[in-house]
Amino acid sequence: MSKQLMKPITVKGYAVAEPTETQKFLLKPIEQQVNSLGENDIFVDIIASSICYGAFHHVGNIPGHEIVGIVRHVGERVEKDGKIAVGMRVGMGWNYSSCLECGSCKHHFENLCDSSKPFMNAPIGGGFQNGVVWDSRFVYPIPEKLKSVDAAPLFCAGAAVFSPLKLYRESPYSKPNEFKVAVLGLGGLGHLALQFASKMGFHVTALSTSANKEEECRLFGANDFHVHTNENSVKQLNSNFDLILNCVSTDIDTDKFVKMLKPFGKLAIIGVPSSGSIKAGAFAMIMKNRSIVGSGGASNDQIREMLNFAAEHNIKPQIELSSLEKVNEAMEKVVKNQARYRIVMVVDKEIVDKENQ
């Protein structure tokens, strides 16, 4: 049953208006009304919302899937359950809901559910506005140590790199103290991947196209740095890594990176290739039991673990602050690869200022 609110809530945000040559689409102001909540729903006043490049791959009515806010209203079942309460600071990411009954859900991989619904399916969804309605079973309390503007990018970028580091951290070929991780690309995903991998205790190598990024990569936790367009570097890296996280959103020479893997090594595809496909030769994989794996975000349990790990180890994104009113300007900067490394839109300035005191 739905719960009628005592007073309708007007939500103001920005929705897709039309394509443009420079940034694929233009966002325009809109207003929506929330009159009631489903039994598992909550209404959240947004504090901060960050911009993921994935917004350009899945354009719904209102983009945005890295969201932090304060719970203001809860549905009847949520109220009885008590796990999510009014006044709690929570975050939301790509997944709005799943069936919670299939094999994937029962094995606690809700993000892999065939009936999983992304954020654009929420009744009032998407982070480019001042409030959202969300399924309470897919929101996550935020540790006190994490500021809202730092927590927002963790709900997509942080989750996306944390999950494969947890799932693929063991190898029949390398002992735990020999396990080597490489991160391809220093961007919204890559700069967080370096931090998580380093704090997990792995030997971490940054792979970049630019020698100018070495100092920055080492500050984020890289033990080694290589320009992968340098032929001499590439040759010495063959059969060197147990896991490579591909964090770039362009097409890559997949075979080159497969050959950098040790036997049983894995190339994890996190960034979406610009062509939408991956081409790789079979021989290099077959001869050394190498594999290419996908990484479909993180499960509910993994997101909770990731947030606690980030808080404990002081892992946070490098961000630029903006506002909802400047969303088109911010989106254009992201698509031109000028963001360093996440643009976070401040929605509730009073709370953000208070956290920074």
Score class of each variant (00 low, 15 high):
L189M: 12
A48V: 02
G103D: 06
V334C: 10
L321W: 01
F56L: 09
G201I: 13
E320A: 03
G221A: 01
G91P: 11
R340P: 00
S299F: 14
I351V: 15
V78C: 02
K175I: 09
S171I: 00
T20R: 08
Y168E: 08
A330Q: 00
C102Y: 03
S291L: 04
G82Q: 03
I30E: 11
N246H: 03
D253S: 08
K166G: 10
G201P: 09
R72Y: 01
P118L: 12
L321H: 01
G75D: 00
E31D: 07
S136G: 08
V16D: 09
E355A: 02
A206W: 01
F128C: 04
N111W: 14
R290H: 00
Y96P: 05
Q4Y: 04
A311I: 13
S323D: 04
V71D: 01
V133I: 14
I270T: 11
V16N: 13
E216N: 04
L5F: 05
H203C: 04
I315S: 03
E312C: 05
Y96W: 12
F128V: 07
S2C: 07
V344T: 04
F283V: 12
V204L: 01
F225S: 04
N95L: 15
L192M: 15
E76V: 11
N246M: 06
T205D: 00
L261H: 05
I303E: 04
S49N: 08
H228C: 10
S115P: 00
V59H: 07
I42S: 03
S98I: 09
L219M: 13
Q302I: 14
D251Q: 06
N40C: 05
H65N: 11
D251S: 06
V234H: 09
Q32G: 01
A152M: 08
F179N: 08
C113R: 05
C247W: 05
G87H: 02
I62P: 08
M345D: 02
S210C: 07
S275V: 12
I142P: 00
K316E: 07
I351D: 00
E76A: 13
P273G: 02
H313G: 05
F109D: 03
L219W: 03
C156A: 11
F56D: 02
A268H: 05
V344N: 00
I292L: 10
A160K: 01
P143K: 07
E355T: 02
P176S: 10
L237R: 13
F25C: 10
T229D: 11
N240A: 14
S174L: 07
P8M: 05
L245H: 01
I244S: 03
Q23F: 10
A157T: 11
R72T: 11
I62C: 12
E312L: 14
H226A: 14
L261Q: 04
S148I: 00
K83I: 03
P118M: 13
S171M: 01
Y140C: 02
V183I: 15
P8S: 08
S233D: 14
S104V: 06
I47D: 02
I286N: 06
I84L: 09
N308E: 14
I252K: 10
Q33D: 09
G64A: 04
P19R: 11
